[in-house]
């Protein structure tokens, strides 16, 4: 299976929040006019993802999942007589955690780092409704990471991927001002197309195979021949 590092790298490049799933597009398009604001929002996303996903992971595994309450009483466990499954509440719990963390961070930043608040302040409320944050929590739930470390590395990887995406788009948009874009395409239109092209560029990471070494090891352990396949296969992108 995938190692923790694989998950991190994969979340940055192959499964980039923006280019593969379009998560957090609203603020991505709205705040990418200059590199400076892009960096601000990017950092805020990395931070909030890094905090909320592990919290939601604990919530998922110790409260919401089927039988997750077994630490309270054996009867509530998967094998217990009275299994409790609260997973239908996960959306509401996840968004509540995200919203309260964002609010908390906003207050702390305002109090202790007014300069940072000046730079980040307007972005923080935006983050509560940034799809990439809730998306991070939902993907974490969907993929059922087996340790909190994996979940955290996924969260940080996604955040860094988002950061890279917004900063590079902002840099391109700063330069595009000097180009002669057809009038009807100016602003939003060209931004969409540029993002699309960046996405295609990012797709070339897709052929990278992860966890090759470990996979090969477990194959030989089970007594079989190691299958020879290319380590990198970018010719035919899936």
């Amino acid at each position: 299976m995938e190692s923790t590092l694989d998950i991190f790298v994969k979340a940055i490049f192959t499964e980039n929040m923006i280019f593969a799933y379009f998560l957090g597009m609203c603020s991505y398009l709205a705040v990418s006019k200059t590199v400076k604001t892009g960096v601000g929002l990017g950092l805020a996303v990395v931070f909030v993802l890094g905090v909320t996903v592990p919290m939601n992971y604990l919530l998922e595994n110790y409260v919401l999942k089927e039988g997750a309450l077994s630490w309270l009483n054996e009867d509530y466990g998967v094998n217990g007589s009275n299994t409790i499954d609260l997973s239908f509440l996960s959306f509401i719990m996840f968004i509540a955690v995200v919203a309260s963390i964002v609010q908390l961070v906003e207050m702390l930043v305002e109090k202790f780092a007014p300069a940072l608040y000046g730079a980040l302040g307007i972005f923080l409320p935006l983050i509560a409704v940034n799809c990439s944050i809730l998306g991070g929590a939902l993907f974490m739930q969907d993929r059922q990471y087996s340790t909190i470390l994996d979940a955290t590395s996924f969260a940080l990887g996604s955040g860094v991927g988002w950061f890279i995406a917004i900063v590079s788009l902002a840099a391109i948009r700063e330069k595009i001002r000097y180009s002669n874009v057809p009038p009807a395409l100016r602003g939003l239109g060209i931004t969409f197309i540029v993002t699309g092209l960046m996405g295609i560029a990012f797709m070339s990471f897709m052929g990278v195979e992860y966890g090759k070494k470990e996979e090969a090891k477990s194959n030989t352990e089970s007594g079989g021949a190691v299958e020879t396949s290319q380590i990198i296969n970018v010719k035919q992108v899936n």
Partner: peptide, 8 residues
């Protein structure tokens, strides 16, 4: 079919 084409 690839995701980026939606944007374009």
């Amino acid at each position: 079919i690839l995701p980026p084409m939606a944007l374009i």
